[in-house]
Amino acid sequence: MPGRVITITSGKGGVGKTTATANLGVVLAQRGMRVAVVDADIGLRNLDVVMGLENRIIYDLVDAVEGHCRLEQALIRDKRLPELYLLPAAQTRDKSAVSEEQMCELCNDLREIVDFALVDSPAGIEQGYRNAVAPADEILVITTPEVSAVRDADRIIGLVEAEGKGPARLIINRLKPAMVQRGDMLDTQDVLDVLAVELVGVVPEDEKIIVSANQGRPAALLNGSLAGQAFHRIGGRLLGEVVPFVELKAPPSFLERLLDIFQATGGDL
């Protein structure tokens, strides 16, 4: 069976496409899938450092497309997992180095050798975005629960639909449960009300994402990170499993713990 090409895109920059691509790659590989994560952000290569594979790059996506190497030579194996590969972007070229047709051909070749190719799209709606979306079987749109990011997500969802690649599914990233509880951040339902799309998962704001990016070890590789667990649930859903949506809760504050104790004693301190 040919592999599935899933493109992760967003409209607005910096909302977590690269983070999601790396972590979902790890999650699916941990589940025994053969996975390639593809950095389609040509000229602004990042997936390599997030994965911690930056020192092993010899060839890149443009080399493979232009025939300077075979596709297999450009794929860097992530030794932490049995079958996870990175196809890095070229750093010294720009988006126009590759056409949509070339990306489609490349992904057709990838379909032969992997179960999943996860394509990390650049921000925006220009050539780089179109290159990332053209080969996709499925599109995941990622947003944060903020007005500007949600607005751009809506634009992308519409474009994806118009290109016959829809319906896109949604990941909400960097949700802060404490702010949601205060009413100072859009919650999952608010975002779904305005966007009217299917949700694949919600990833909380988690400092471990930044720590893991520092170290080049995606959070999904570590036990116990909340964001990592969220990516595991999303991975399950991509595999067609029915994974219940859990409500993300803020850890109780010192005062709330104090109040709990106070109430448990019937106010009799």
């Binding site: 007005v147 949601v180 009413g183 100072d184 951040m185 859009l186 608010d190 009300d193 305005v194």
Partner: peptide, 8 residues
């Protein structure tokens, strides 16, 4: 006063 209502 919830700013999320304004956002929505």
């Amino acid at each position: 006063n919830r700013s999320k209502d304004v956002a929505k």
